[in-house]
Design a protein around this nucleic acid. Structure first.
Length: 721
RNA sequence: GGGCGAUUAGCUCAGUUGGUAGAGCAGCGCUUUUACACAGCGAAGGUCGGGGGUUCGAAUCCCUCAUCGCCCACCA
């Protein structure tokens, strides 16, 4: 009788096993699809590609729980398809995460009593680079600790020289195709971080404010920002508003503490007759809507607030005051002049910086903008033509709504940490040209000087091209993996990231970047509350891995988690799945200690009718689990395996076969040994994508000659097939 | 103001095409007898948010109401 492997007599110890197993996998080279071997008796394996590009984690810290889910799901897909014989490629990456990393680093500088505004551009860049490269290593180790079977030989960093040059080349292409332009318009300005932000980098918060009704020439206007009165250039009314018809097109005189203003009365459909008094003061330099009206009606733009959120010298005695202070003072002075009719309480949504919650100030600046309409149409058309499938499918509607309602995308950031925009700009006339189409320092058509644009790209400009960049584009070596199969990421990126990848993929390569988008929900704390440092409820996936093993964490994250829905991650649940791993370990111990001379190579013996039933039940499980995995129902696949192993295999089959296994040598005993071994092997294989470490370890202990690593074992097929 | 999601056991959540409700944890009881005390087994626990409809049959499909949550939005 075969001896039970010594290892099985001790409880499974994830901490002692996982590192060694991961090393075994890496040494095998099988994470790299180029190395997947021909297998005896199996033709056609490892020829057809299956590709996932990993959303590159930010290289500015450790992984969080959401990353754990990402790794678990993508690894399940990659391992499943590899076992199914696909040439599976999962490309890892690291994101320099421009603004986000700069914010992280600024906090570090603040703690040290330093400030980026006092640092030389190069000095700051080099320091953040050193910090990022160090963080990147920690991040990569975390990804490995979770068991990710990704091809490290193909890892890409968003600041790799080849990536940088290709991102800049895309900008030049867009410029030549007239899809990017230098605009002078209001942008979302963060006064703390001293940079503009795209719309998706702002959040809106409810704010209790006051609505001031100001006597304004013959009108009364309602405003929450009386301090911008010095920048007013017009009064707008609705063309159909009978009350004001007589004033349209005329000039009026408006009083304020710094003297009278002469303003034009304009008519614009955008003015809501119902709101306030139906008359609106227009401040083009400090309000997005007003700016738009200034374009339609050719109005001047008078800036009265500077980049630090202080009133400038056009405001007379208010110059140098911060907005809040100036507002109080201006209202007092207007009241003294009898110009305030009434003040109402008013709650409205204001945009804030998504990192520091500072109120976003609309500010007129020269910046680069991507013309979105034609690109968005390509993306929307591709989705309408079902080139991309969404899981869950309701996200398709969200995507299309977004693509049908785009506004031009501001890609200039006034930060050093990122890819520099390859352009020269004229500070006199605000035009810009490509860096390779003019000489730095040369004269602009307007007589000004062309200087190097110091701005960097919005990080989503480079991330948006990631599926191609990660495959080494424009190098064609790996383009056979494009379009990729699945893009799996958090549902919060449906706006920030997914659309940009789709439109850049189509624009650069003429093909969608992925065939399926799988969106997972947010990983929240055990009460379903969002994890945040300030609440102190953040859990680290690595701490959980250290405590319960990566396997337990992975399967706990996946089972019970439906696509698109948030998950409440309780430590108890992970503990429960650690018990499950323990169960699998002990089932294996029992089966192996009773296997006798039977191995996985033993030909199928004569089975009893009951054995046939057992096999039929296993077949049903194989078919069902396979169908779930093919259709992105990972939570159901995991749950079904859980039930099969525990409630069926352990509780029923093993208990029932115990007498036969303990009985006399003979056909009945042999068939019982054969069937328990087969069921155990099939279950171990099917569980491998979910709990790769323990299953690889168990596989190494199963009696089977010419055994390879479990990661390239063929996926089980029904026995009746 | 729009859009989306949720409402199932004490808590957190599953339930793929409609066929007599499931998991983890908590609580209760039992058990170291061919695996499992880093436990196992068992019992208990739910009129599946309310109402209406379709159906032989509805947690599942349709309508409606209520409550909660998320996202988007140029009513100053």
């Amino acid at each position: 009788m075969a001896e039970v492997p010594e290892k099985l007599n001790k409880p499974y110890d994830p901490a002692a096993t996982e590192g060694r197993t991961y090393q075994l996998w890496e040494e095998s080279g099988f994470f790299n699809p180029d190395n997947l071997p021909a297998q005896a008796g199996l033709s056609g394996r490892f020829t057809e590609p299956f590709t996932i590009i990993m959303p590159p984690p930010n290289a500015n810290g450790r992984l969080h729980a959401g990353h754990g889910l990402t790794i678990a799901l993508e690894d399940i897909m990659t391992r499943y398809h590899r076992m199914q014989g696909k040439k599976a490629l999962w490309v890892p990456g690291a994101d320099h995460a421009g603004f986000e990393t700069q914010v992280v680093y600024e906090k570090k500088l603040e703690k040290e009593g330093r400030s980026r505004f006092k640092m030389d551009r190069k000095e700051l860049y080099d320091e953040i680079m050193a910090f990022t490269l160090e963080s990147k290593q920690h991040m990569e180790n975390d990804v490995k600790a979770l068991g990710a079977s990704c091809d490290w030989s193909r890892e890409k960093f968003t600041l790799d020289p080849s990536v940088v040059s290709e991102v800049q080349e895309t900008f030049r292409k867009l410029y030549r195709d007239n899809l990017v332009y230098r605009g002078y318009r209001t942008v979302n300005w963060c006064t703390k971080h001293q940079t503009s932000l795209s719309d998706v980098e702002t959040e809106t918060v409810e704010k209790a404010d006051k609505l001031y009704y100001l006597k304004y020439g013959p009108f009364v206007v309602a405003t929450v920002r009386p301090e911008t009165i010095f920048g007013d250039v017009a009064v707008a009314v609705n063309p159909n508003d009978a009350r004001y018809k007589e004033f349209i097109g005329k000039d009026i005189e408006v009083q304020h503490p710094e003297g009278p203003l002469t303003l034009k009365v304009i008519a614009d459909e955008a003015v809501d007759v119902e709101f306030g008094t139906g008359a609106l003061k227009i401040t083009p330099a400090h309000d997005h809507n007003d700016f738009r009206m200034s374009e339609t009606h050719q109005l001047p733009r008078v800036e009265v607030i500077d980049q630090f959120g202080k009133l400038n010298d056009k405001t007379g005695k208010y110059a140098g005051m911060k907005i809040a202070e100036a507002r109080t003072k201006v209202v007092e002075d207007l009241q003294a002049l009898g110009l305030v009719e009434k003040i109402e309480d008013y709650t409205h949504a204001v945009p804030v910086c998504y990192k520091c919650n500072a109120t976003i100030e609309p500010r007129v600046m020269p910046q680069w903008f991507v013309k979105m309409a034609p690109l968005a149409k390509m993306a929307a058309d591709a989705v309408r033509a079902e080139k991309i499938k969404f899981v869950p499918d309701n996200f398709e509607k969200v995507f299309l709504y977004w693509m049908d309602n785009t506004i031009d995308w501001n890609i200039s950031r006034q930060i050093v940490w990122g890819i520099q925009i390859p352009a020269l700009v004229c500070l006199s006339c605000n035009t810009g040209v490509l860096d390779n189409e003019a000489i730095e320092g040369s004269e602009c058509n307007c007589g000004g000087t062309l200087t190097r644009d110091t701005d960097t790209f919005d990080t989503w400009f480079s991330s948006g091209q990631w599926p191609l960049l990660a495959l080494g584009y424009p190098d064609t070596k790996d383009l056979a993996y494009y379009p990729t199969d699945v893009m799996e990421t958090g549902r919060d990126l449906i706006f920030k990231w997914i659309p940009r990848m789709v439109l850049f993929g189509l624009y650069l390569k003429g093909e969608v970047p992925f065939r399926t988008v799988y969106l997972h929900g947010m990983v929240n704390d055990k009460h379903g509350k969002k994890m945040s440092k300030s609440k102190g409820n953040v859990v680290s996936p690595i701490e959980l891995t250290d405590k319960y093993g990566a396997d337990a964490l992975r399967i706990a994250l996946v089972v019970g988690n439906t696509p698109g829905n948030d998950i409440a991650l309780a430590e108890d649940k992970i503990k429960g799945y650690k018990h499950f791993c323990n169960k699998l370990w002990n089932v294996s111990r029992f089966v192996l200690s009773n296997a006798g001379d039977t191995t996985l190579d033993t030909p199928r013996p004569t089975l009893t009718p009951r054995d046939e039933e057992i096999l039929a039940e296993l077949d049903k499980t194989i078919e069902s689990v396979t169908a779930h995995l093919e259709n992105f129902r990972f939570h159901l696949a995991g749950e079904e395996l859980y039930h099969y192993l525990w409630s069926t295999f352990a509780d029923v089959i093993i208990e029932e076969l115990k007498p036969r296994l303990a009985g006399e040598e003979g056909e009945s005993k042999t068939s019982a040994q054969w069937i328990t071994l087969q069921a155990l092997a099939a279950t171990t294989k099917m569980l491998h994508p979910f709990i790769p470490f323990i299953t690889e370890e168990l596989w190494s202990l199963l009696p089977h000659k010419d055994k390879s690593l479990l990661i390239i074992e063929p996926w089980p097929k029904p026995y009746s097939a």
